[in-house]
Design a protein around this nucleic acid. Structure first.
Length: 474
RNA sequence: GGGGUCGUCGGCUAGCUUGGUCUAGGCUACGAGGCUUGGGCCCUCGUGACCCAGGUUCAAAUCCUGGCGACCCCA
């Protein structure tokens, strides 16, 4: 199945064949994470949480249920989420006096507790996180990993003394996410969302939009500056040095674990299957013994020796000892699962005390002496992530196309399935017309580089304020 | 939110137009055995399916209605 020709089928096949996720669970929008997929997710969580810990975030676990009155406290927030909330109305055969909802996001679960915990300036900043599932009754068609009604994410929530401190926290969050995405070799746009598309309850929102082979964008992370909005609603105040009581300033940010896995598959994998960045591969190196009749004992013993050497270096290595499968079968199997490096050990290698290394990104072979194996593998890991990053970023560049006028805008987004780069006046009416003309949405303007519009607004012809990116989204 | 296509072994599918010859054929996977093993080898045997609920009919995988689910297009 071809990745760029029929993305949807290709994607579903990889999910199934690489043991990532089984979408046959009999509830729409819910699916089972299989062993390989879940191990990948756990590795991503580990990398992310390590960065969060390093930067003073603390792990906690808040309940999945939220009482209706807490959910309703911030008026913009409830407007934004109420239409997609799962409600718990009954327990056994009794109707609950107070309805409960399954968290669609955890602000309203966490901030009542913040109000209790934060008393003084000395309690600030407070930075907490959790990696959990959240629930949203998506009305659009659900898609495995990309749009689920139950999805996994890591969310962080912070409280600060001032707007400036919250602004610095936003920058730190963006930096943390960038550093994790870099280790995964992902390419994406870091966009400030237009006001009409910000998080419900936020002052402003920044989002990470990853490219997808079908031209849509996949929002893999968001960072919000909440200002005092939730502090006012939940009465989260602190006593300052001078004895006065003030609202806290808050930020929150979410890292979409399910969608990051989707982005890794979508951006890196090929028609042989998955290609995993070494940092998150459950098995980084697989050893395939090549057995011939009469030499099996020597080769097996040598393969075991190679295995012990690699394992003792801390690399996640697996020795595939199944003698009922041919080496060719094993090659295809491990390529489907995306193991970054394969070590072939045959009679020739054994005689010469060498190993044959093959990297998944291009399937090229090199032969190295046994004593150089670990160094050579580590070099390959570095090369692999570099190649993945380069490939992905060059595809992103190809996918972004400047829209000269309304008809080319339509062609870019609808016909050619790309991301359009558009000059916009920031008028809401023009945004609506951009939506109609393109079939996509204004995703926002870049914050990592300053882009000055060199042309007037694509719709009204008046002075453009921003260069924005327009694409269809998941 | 609107429109369309579709649902058959674990996976991919043939059959449906024109109801009966289909308690269903192929490939793959899985299990047993043999032969092989530097890219899916070959042979033998075995396991395994008509989404659910109604309806029409002497007879339903096939036609109709509804539900559930999947995918595509448009807003």
């Amino acid at each position: 199945m071809k990745k760029f020709k029929n993305f949807s089928k290709w994607f579903d096949e990889i999910l199934f064949n690489a043991d990532i996720l089984d979408n046959r669970y009999p509830v729409k929008g819910f699916a089972v994470y299989k062993a390989w997929g879940f191990r990948i997710i756990k590795n991503i969580i580990e990398i992310l949480e390590e960065r969060l810990n390093e930067t003073g975030h603390i792990p906690m676990l808040f309940p999945v249920v939220i009482p209706e009155d807490a959910f309703a406290k911030e008026s913009e927030h409830i407007k934004g989420f109420s239409s997609e909330v799962f409600w718990i109305t009954h327990a056994g055969d009794r109707e609950l006096d107070k309805k409960l909802l399954l968290r669609p996001t955890s602000e309203t679960a966490i901030y009542p507790m913040f109000a209790l915990w934060i008393r003084s300036h000395a309690d600030l900043p407070l930075k907490v996180y959790q990696s959990v599932a959240v629930y949203r009754y998506e009305t659009k068609a659900t898609r495995p990993l990309l749009r689920m009604r139950e999805f996994l994410w890591n969310e962080a929530h912070t409280a600060h003394k001032s707007w400036e401190e919250a602004e610095r926290q936003v920058a730190e969050a963006v930096e943390i996410y960038n550093s994790v995405f870099k280790r995964l070799g992902l390419s994406y746009l870091v966009l400030r969302r237009p006001d009409f598309d910000k998080f419900a309850g936020a002052v402003y929102s920044i989002a990470f939009d990853a490219w997808n082979p079908d031209g849509r964008v996949n929002q893999i992370g968001t960072v919000h500056n909440l200002g005092e909005n939730f502090a006012k609603a939940f009465e989260i105040t602190y006593e300052d040095l001078d004895g006065s009581h003030k609202n806290v300033f808050q930020t929150c940010y979410g890292f979409g674990l399910s969608r990051v896995v989707a982005a890794i598959i979508a951006q890196h994998s090929d028609d042989h299957g998955l290609i995993l960045p070494p940092d998150i591969a459950p098995i980084q190196v697989v050893i395939v013994p090549i057995l011939y009749k009469g030499a099996t004992h020597e080769v097996n013993a040598y393969a075991r020796e190679v295995y012990e050497i690699i394992k003792s270096s801390g690399i996640r290595v697996h020795l595939d000892t199944d003698e009922d499968k041919t080496p060719g079968e094993k090659f295809y199997y491990w390529e489907m699962l995306g193991a970054p490096v394969r070590v072939e050990v045959g009679p020739r290698d054994q005689r010469e005390r060498k190993v044959t290394l093959v990297k998944r990104v291009d399937l090229k072979r090199i032969v190295v002496p046994l004593e150089d194996t670990v160094t050579a593998i580590k070099d390959l890991f570095n090369e692999i992530i570099r190649v993945l990053e380069e490939r992905s970023s060059s595809t992103l560049k190809e996918i972004i196309v400047d829209a000269e006028d309304q008809s080319s805008l339509s062609d870019i987004v609808k016909l050619n399935r790309r991301i359009a780069r558009v000059c916009w006046c920031e008028g809401v009416e023009c945004a609506e017309k951009i939506r109609e003309a393109s079939g996509g949405e204004i995703r926002g303007y870049r914050i990592d580089v300053e882009e000055k519009p060199e042309k007037p607004c694509i719709i009204c012809g008046r002075e453009a304020k921003r260069i924005v990116y327009v694409a269809r989204a998941y």
